[in-house]
């Protein structure tokens, strides 16, 4: 069987996105403490999206599936797709936030405060 094609414009993506409710910082920290310690050792210093190093001004964040990116890079990708660029895992919309800074949990409210 081959690929069938149907010539037409791809419909624009749903503009609406599901909400990720904020939860208290300490509760979230307890939930993810073990996950933060399971970051892959491979290319740990390089963001796989922009291929640039992490810095104190542009630090590493870690997704729920334990993959790391610059916050600005994953934020821009998440405007197009909710999936993780490395493992393609989609968020499961539970009560946990999507991203974690090392040692700090980034709730949606916090990321919007960063004005990204």
């Amino acid at each position: 069987m081959v690929c069938e094609t149907n010539i037409q414009q791809i419909p624009s993506e749903e503009s609406s996105k599901k909400c990720h409710p904020d939860i208290p910082l300490m509760v979230a920290l307890e939930k993810v403490k073990s996950k933060v310690n399971t970051i892959s050792e491979d290319d740990e210093d390089i963001c796989p999206i922009c291929l640039e190093e992490y810095t104190s001004e542009n630090p590493r964040i870690v997704t729920k599936c334990s993959h790391h990116y610059h916050l600005s890079c994953i934020y821009e990708w998440n405007e197009r797709s909710e999936t993780c660029p490395v493992c393609s895992k989609a968020p499961d919309y539970d009560d946990e936030p999507k991203w974690y800074l090392v040692g700090v949990v980034l709730t949606n409210r916090f990321t919007s405060m960063l004005q990204l």
Partner: peptide
């Protein structure tokens, strides 16, 4: 469906404008 597809692309359409179906 090669002939049908290529005929539809004659105006220089990019493959990124095609709606692809992947089932193989």
């Amino acid at each position: 469906d090669n002939d049908r597809y290529v005929k539809n692309c004659r105006n220089g359409r990019s493959p990124k404008e095609t709606r692809w179906w992947f089932h193989d």
